[in-house]
Design a protein around this nucleic acid. Structure first.
Lengths: 269, 269
DNA sequence: GCATCATTGAATGTATACAAATTTGCGTTA
DNA sequence: TAACGCAAATTTGTATACATTCAATGATGC
C-alpha cells in the first residue's frame, strides 16, 4: 500500500516522525490544516475553546472554504470535536483516554505482529529490522545518560514499529492504526523526547530495546503465540513511561500536545 | 459517551442496525452523503468509478459545496478513496481485506470484552445483556428454518455486541471500532440477513448464540482471560459465514455492498 | 510516422455573496 | 429580581463565480 511504503521511506530517510512542518505548499487547505494543528499542539488554542471559521480566516490569511475543510479533517484526526449543533471545539483527553489509546495501539500492533509471524517476514524486511535494531543498539551504547540522541532513538523506534506493520501486510490494519497514531500522545515514541530529564530514562530505553529483540526473534521463528503478547507488553511499557512523564510537571509540560490532556481524569467534558 | 448511549437506545428501540434512511433532512450535506452512499451500496456507482463533483450535482440536485463535504466524509468512512492527485473513486475491497476487517473487529471486540470483564459489568447492563440473549433464544426457538426473523436476529445480535462495547466504557475504543463498522460487510450482523437461502443457516445462528452465552458467562464471572479469546473466536465464526455467502453466487449478490467486493483477491487496485 | 509541444477543455481549488439558523443580550413584565 | 421573549448580531450552510491545475488531443516539426 502506498501510505505504508511512504512511511517506511520517510523513516528510512531518517527524518523526524510525525513532524508537521509548515513548509510552503500551494494548497490552501493543507496550509489551514497544518496551521490549526500547530496552534492546537502549541497550546495557542486552549482545550475546550470554540473555533469560529472567521477568526481562523483572520489568523491564517485563508478564506473560509479551506478553513472549513481543515476543520473537518482535524475533527477526523480527533483533535477537534463537533460543538453543540454548530461549530467545533478543541478536544481534550482525560488521562484514562490517553492510556486507552496506548492499549488500543498495543492491541493492534499485537495483531500485526501475530499476522507477521504467521505469514513470515520477507528477507528484505528481516534485514531492515535487524539493521534498525542494530542502529538503536549502537545509539544506546555510545550515548551517555541524558544525551541528546533521543530524537534519533524516537525515529528508529518508530521505524521498527512501522516495519512490523509492513510485515503484517494489511491495509485495513494500517488504516485503523493510523487513526490512533494521529493522536500526538499515542505514537510509540511520543514520550521518548521528553524523558531526558527523568531519572532512569536510559534504562527504560534499554528495556524497550530488549523487548524489540524478543519481538524480532518471535517473528523470525514464526512464533505467532509469542509475538502477539510480546508486542502488547511492549506497549504497556509505553504506558509506564507516560505515567512517569505525567507525574513530573516539568516533563509533562514539554510533551507534545500536553495541553490536550486534562489533569483530572473525570473532569470536564 | 453520547454516541454509544445513542446506539444502545437506537437498538433498544428495535430499529434496524446501520440503516441509512433517506429521510427528509434540512441538511444538504447530509442529503448528499446519504445519496452517494446509497448509490454506492446499491451498485449504481461501480467500484473503481471516478466521481466528479459536477455529475453528482446533476444527480443529487445539490450544489458543489455540500457534495464536496460529502465526498470527504465518505472517504473517511472508507467507501471512497482519493484518486491520483485529484478527485475520488469508489473504493473496492479484496476478499482478503474483508476478512481482515472482520479480524480487526474481533480483536477490538475482544479487547472490549476483556476490559468489561476486568472492570465488571453494571447490574443494569447485565440485565440488558440477559434480556437480549433471552430474546434471541426465544426467536431461535420459534422460528422455522429459513424463517423471516433474520432481520430481528440481526438487530438483537448487534445490540448484544453494542452492550459489550458499552460495558468496556471506552470512548477511544468506540471510535476505533466505529471506523471498522462503517464498512457494510464488517458489522457483526452483516451476513445474517442473506443467509436464509443457505443450508444450515439456523444452525450457524444457534452456534453463535451459544457463544454469546459463553461470553456473558465469562463477563459475569470477571474472567478476562476467557472473555477475550471467546470474543475473538466469535468473530471468526462471522468469517466462516462470510466464506459461505461469498461462495454462493445468489447469496453473494444479495449482500449489502456486495458490489464493493472484488471476486479475485489480488486483482485491481 | 513518431514525438514533442501547445492549446483547449474539463475538473477541482478558492473566494465570496447571500441565506438560514443559532446565540446573545437587552428590555419588559410578572 | 428573576424569567421570559423578542430582536439584533454573529456564525454556519449553501450556491456560484472565478482561478488554477491537470489531462487530452491535435498540430507541427523533425
Amino acid at each position: 500500500m502506498n501510505k505504508r511504503q511512504d512511511a517506511i521511506q520517510e523513516l528510512a530517510a531518517d527524518t523526524q516522525i510525525r513532524s508537521f512542518p509548515l513548509e510552503a505548499t500551494s494548497n490552501q487547505t493543507e496550509r489551514a490544516v497544518q496551521g490549526v494543528r500547530e496552534m492546537i499542539l502549541r497550546g495557542e488554542l486552549q482545550a475546550g475553546e470554540r473555533l469560529t471559521e472567521l477568526s481562523l480566516v483572520a489568523r491564517l490569511q485563508v478564506s473560509r472554504t479551506p478553513i472549513r475543510s481543515a476543520l473537518l479533517r482535524l475533527t477526523e484526526e480527533g483533535l477537534l470535536e463537533p460543538a453543540s449543533a454548530t461549530g467545533f471545539v478543541v478536544r481534550s483527553f482525560s488521562e484514562d483516554e490517553v492510556f486507552d489509546s496506548i492499549e488500543i495501539r498495543g492491541t493492534l500492533e499485537g495483531l500485526a505482529a501475530r499476522r507477521a509471524a504467521e505469514r513470515g517476514v520477507s528477507p528484505e524486511l528481516q534485514a531492515q529490522m535487524r539493521q534498525c535494531l542494530a542502529q538503536i543498539e549502537s545509539l544506546l551504547a555510545e550515548s551517555s545518560p541524558g544525551g541528546t540522541h533521543l530524537s534519533r532513538y524516537a525515529a528508529l523506534n518508530g521505524r521498527f514499529h512501522a516495519l512490523i506493520m509492513a510485515a503484517a501486510d494489511s491495509a485495513m490494519l494500517d488504516n485503523t492504526l493510523d487513526k490512533i497514531l494521529n493522536l500526538p500522545f499515542a505514537s510509540p515514541s511520543a514520550f521518548v523526547e521528553v524523558q531526558s530529564h527523568l531519572p532512569g530514562s536510559l534504562e527504560i530505553l534499554r528495556q524497550a530495546q530488549a523487548q524489540h529483540w524478543d519481538i524480532l526473534d518471535a517473528l523470525l521463528s514464526r512464533s505467532s503465540a509469542r509475538a502477539e503478547p510480546l508486542m502488547r507488553e511492549h506497549a504497556r511499557s509505553a504506558r509506564k513511561n507516560l505515567e512517569l512523564v505525567l507525574a513530573d510537571q516539568t516533563a509533562r509540560q514539554q510533551m507534545h500536545g500536553a495541553s490536550l490532556i486534562r489533569s483530572t481524569p473525570t473532569q470536564g467534558q
